[in-house]
Structure formats: C-alpha cells, structure tokens
C-alpha cells in the first residue's frame, strides 16, 4: 500500500430530480458502481425546482462545484422543468463568472432513471474536473458571516 498523496478534495453539491437523476443515483448504488464521495446529493422533486439562488448559495457556503441533474430532454415528468433548469444554470454560470468563479464549476447534466452508470460517470468526471480547477476562489477568503434577512413584513407599512 502506497501512502496516499494528499490531494484537494472538492465539495460538490448535486441537485438531483426525484424521478430521474436521484433514481439513477440509487441505481448506481444498486449496481455497486463507485463514484467519488465528494458528491453530495440534494433531492428535489424536479430539476425545475432548483432556484438560481440555491445554486449561488451553494457556492457561497463553500461548495467547489455544483451541478443540477435532471431528466433527459423531453422526458421531464413535469414537461419542461429540465430545460428551465438548464437555462437557469446558464444564467448562474454568467453570474459566477462575473464574481470571478470559473463557470465550469457549475453545469447541468441529463440522465434517465435507469442510467446508474451515467450517474457514476458524471459524478466522477465532474469531481475530476473540479479537482483540477482547485478550491473555489471564494474559499481562499475568510468565512462568510451570517447575513441578516429581515423578516419584517413589507406590507406592514400599508
């Protein structure tokens, strides 16, 4: 056994739609296909549920890479949630580029429920890609202080 060389272990958040990608992830498990433990899955009912805000907050909290995994084109259980998600991912790509984060750190992937192998493959590829990119540029800085979000009702003034 050789001494493992210490390498950068990115934290990757995968937003997976319940019907396809999350099922594919379970499939990967059932088939005992291995993929990097760096990928952490957040289950959503449809990739169309993933808000640009969630994607951005993931980076803000310190994720090194984020991806949204939805159904294959034309297969969305809710008509077109996946294409909407893809458009949002593109929008967030532009935004993070403005911030100075490589746009490659976020992407949209599509797969069907039966594609356990594809899930594992994608997870591996993305992990490798992010690993090569190194830690998220914002992790170089200090931790994020909690931001206040005022709860006061805007209607109160009425």
């Amino acid at each position: 056994m050789s001494e493992p060389t210490p390498q950068f272990e990115p934290v990757i958040v995968a937003f997976c739609c319940h019907y396809c990608a999350y099922t594919a992830a379970d499939q990967a498990g059932a088939q005992r296909l291995s993929y990097p433990a760096n990928v952490k899955i957040v289950r959503v009912p449809c990739s169309g549920k993933v808000d640009a805000l969630h994607l951005l907050r993931a980076f803000e909290k310190g994720a090194d890479g984020v991806y949204v995994a939805g159904c294959l084109e034309g297969d969305c259980h809710f008509n077109n949630g996946n294409t909407r998600a893809a458009r949002r991912v593109t929008q967030v790509q532009k935004l993070i580029e403005e911030i100075g984060i490589e746009k490659e750190r976020i992407e949209m992937v599509l797969m069907s429920a039966g594609m356990g192998d594809r899930f594992a493959e994608v997870a591996t590829e993305i992990t490798e890609k992010i690993r090569a990119l190194g830690p998220s540029p914002i992790r170089g800085g200090k931790p994020a202080p909690a931001r206040a979000q005022t709860k006061a009702s805007a209607k109160a003034a009425k």
Binding site: V44, P45, C46, G48, K49, V50, D51, A52, H77, F78, G81, R84, R88
Partner: peptide
C-alpha cells in the same frame, strides 16, 4: 398542483 416547484423557483 403537481408539485414540481417550477413556479417557486421562478
């Protein structure tokens, strides 16, 4: 409502 959440996201 079918519960996809697209409206919530947009």
């Amino acid at each position: 409502c079918h519960g996809c959440g697209i409206c919530a996201a947009e």
